[in-house]
Design a protein around this nucleic acid. Structure first.
Lengths: 192, 192
DNA sequence: GTCAATATTGACATTAATGTCAAGAATGAA
DNA sequence: TTCATTCTTGACATTAATGTCAATATTGAC
């Protein structure tokens, strides 16, 4: 390699993630990315090809850290405690930043109709893996659920997290989201 | 009135709703609206001012019919039956059309960051009124819930419907959504 | 130190959207 | 029948985005 890249790729992708998280794949422009990263538009095209390629890299980074955090949150305690930690993580994740950034996966999912198969696949992968993590977590503690029941319940729980992401966009506060999550956990797990 | 409008306003708004439902406020263009309605762009600007004004009218029509359908679905039977009908209506609503149109309220909510206060308010109003309808419905049958509990539960139920809307966008089938809704109802209401 | 390979830069072409406007067409009212 | 009012139409100006490219700068390898 001879002419050497003038920017740090990891740093670039991390900054791009921030931009995509705040604006979404569709609304973030190459201008936005260039301005935020300090890398010229032309260089970005040269290095990555197009906006979507940058997004996919950024999203992969996001998905990895998100699933990691979910896994950690789901690791300890009884089922209720695991879910409390899990929902806490999710809610903090989506209500962080000024203004709040919301949930990138959910935002990306909503643009499915105008997204490429690659992007759609990424969203499905995150949700599938999240279902698996939740399924394992609620099966890990002593209970009288069948595996099939646990899987169905895991999907319900993941679906509910998506609902929280929508409610956040609709203006519900962190506190309101937490209350709903608590109510949900109590209703679903409380006496099972 | 002298120069007379060449198109039927109700029909025009109904067609506009279809366009917005399929493409979203942001992605639908005045070209799209002009093509679908057969009314020239200039005439639309003359009649309504801008795209958002058309959207607001279309959304109001959508919200009215949606809340009406929800109200009907929630009217009869015990709590489980009411919720089954309610979720059925919601799921059919979002999985209808080819390709599926999804949920307009949810799609609009996700664009909150780039929407006007008027648009955001419309979304909040729909969700608030939906919570009220659900709250009334689950309080209508004999049960041992306090009003406060019913309201919290109503919000959880509405939040779950939003989750279903996201899952639909992520590619889950009508059947999968129905199964999740059933599991949810059983878990939340089944033995309360 | 030279050079070949790569990155950077700014300009350019293209496409597409919004919103405005002047000119023309149509029609209810007097 | 005339006319004032309103709607319709197509053209225009503006803005903003994507993606390409040729010219230039840089630097590791030999």
């Amino acid at each position: 390699m001879v002419g050497v890249r003038q920017f740090d790729e990891d740093e670039m992708i991390a900054t791009a993630l921030d931009v995509f998280w705040r604006k979404g794949l569709h609304d973030a422009t190459m201008q936005d990315l260039a301005a935020a990263t300090g890398v010229q538009r032309g260089s970005l095209y040269n290095a990555y090809g197009d906006k979507e390629a940058i997004f996919l890299r950024a999203f992969d980074q996001y998905a990895a850290q998100f699933l990691d955090a979910a896994s950690s949150a789901l690791a300890q305690g009884d089922t209720s405690a695991r879910l409390r930690d899990f929902f806490d993580m999710i809610i903090v994740n989506m209500t962080d930043g000024t203004p709040q950034r919301g949930c990138l996966t959910t935002r990306t999912a909503l643009d499915a109709a105008i997204s490429s198969p690659d992007v759609r696949q990424r969203v499905q992968d995150v949700l599938t893996r999240l279902e698996q993590l939740v399924g394992k977590a609620i099966s890990a503690t002593p209970n009288r659920r069948s595996t099939a029941d646990a899987n169905r319940l895991a999907r319900v729980i993941v679906t509910f997290t998506r609902g929280l992401a929508v409610m956040e966009r609709a203006g519900y506060s962190r506190k309101q989201l937490r209350e709903s999550a608590t109510t949900f956990i109590d209703a679903v797990i409380g006496d099972a």
